[in-house]
């Protein structure tokens, strides 16, 4: 019976869950309707996810072309036509610790981002979930309000907020000066990258948490209190364990995109804040070494999927 309640990851990850095709009457029209409903998303996944991924996997075993792109997949010599594939791109990745280090660093930034998002989002989601019904919709609207303006513009705004001419930073530095401390620089540091990552991903943590917390039966907290639990125990033994599906969903929604992102470190990170996403972008656009860029992308995807799988397994084990 333990399978009765599946882990929340897949179900709660998107606020529009991908449901199994609804059971329709087994008439000839029903079968057609089923395909009409499930066909377009399947086609979309095939064209924009499965096929490109396969192309990328293949590319990771090929040689780069002389002027970027990919070398021809076959070469000819006196013995005939041969497949021109190699493992060299992978050996390059594993032999140069620089890339592994970048992965670890990106992992650390994404993990820190996830943690900070969780710490900010949890109280916020709890506040929204426990507000009167009328206010809740407004508060949720406020959480998603930033989506109404362009992502890059919002990140550029942080450049100004964190930059040398920032009013806030200037004031802060003057206070530091009063105590005889050196002024601090924020822009083009890992700090700026994490601030940007947290800012951009926060709603993706708030929404699944809210969706989860809002469903909690308030009677459970009454019961816990009635049975002698103080405020901390009510949270730690009732609210928190019941919210874990939301926590896992939010963590996945924040961690996975933050792990591979390049725009934010590009704009806010300078040279010290570089992440793996920047290197992948470099390989494709600047160095024009598509095979090696593909290797990095594949390692990134496999790591992210493995982590998500681990989280889902953990969620299932804790019966949530």
């Amino acid at each position: 019976m333990r399978e009765k309640t599946p882990p929340g990851i897949v179900q709660e990850a998107a606020s529009v869950p991908v449901k199994a095709p609804a059971r329709l009457p087994a008439s000839p029209g029903g079968r057609l309707a089923r395909w009409l409903v499930s066909g377009p998303p399947l086609l979309y996944l095939a064209v924009f996810f499965a096929i490109p991924t396969l192309i990328m996997v293949l590319a990771s075993f090929r040689f780069p072309g002389d002027f970027g792109g990919l070398a021809p997949i076959f070469y000819e010599d006196e013995t005939g036509r041969h497949l021109d594939l190699t493992l060299e791109n992978y050996s390059r990745f594993f032999s140069d610790f620089l890339y592994t280090e970048l992965f670890i660093k990106s992992f650390a930034y994404a993990a820190l981002t996830t943690l900070v998002c969780l710490l900010i989002a949890y109280p916020l989601a709890m506040l929204i979930a426990r507000s009167p019904k009328k206010q809740r919709d407004l508060l949720v609207l406020l959480v998603i309000l930033p989506f109404w303006s362009n992502f890059l513009i919002r990140v550029y705004a942080w450049m100004i907020i964190l930059g040398p001419n920032s009013v806030f930073l200037g004031a802060f530095n003057r206070v530091l000066g009063v105590f005889g401390l050196e002024p601090v620089t924020l822009l083009y540091t890992p700090f700026a990258v994490v601030v940007g990552l947290v800012y951009v991903h926060l709603p993706f943590m708030v929404l699944p948490l809210y969706a989860n917390l809002e469903k909690h039966d308030p009677a459970l907290l009454d019961a816990a209190q009635d049975l002698g639990a103080n405020a901390w125990n009510r949270f730690w033994r009732v609210t928190w364990p019941l919210s874990l599906p939301g926590v896992f969903a939010g963590a996945a929604l924040v961690f996975i995109p933050a792990f591979g992102i390049f725009a934010i470190p590009d704009i806010l990170g300078g040279t010290s804040g570089i992440m793996i996403g920047n290197v992948i972008k470099q390989q494709f656009l600047d160095t024009r070494d598509w095979p090696f860029g593909s290797v990095l992308s594949i390692v990134l995807t496999v790591t992210a999927v493995a982590l998500a799988g681990l989280a889902a397994a953990f969620a299932r084990r804790s019966r949530l």
Partner: peptide, 29 residues
Amino acid sequence: PPEARNVHTVFQSYALFPHMTVAQNIAFP
């Protein structure tokens, strides 16, 4: 407050903790 009263309640909805077994529910108080 309720947690400091030696009075317990059986709620209409029972309010059993869904993430705990029967034993864990009873162990809670």
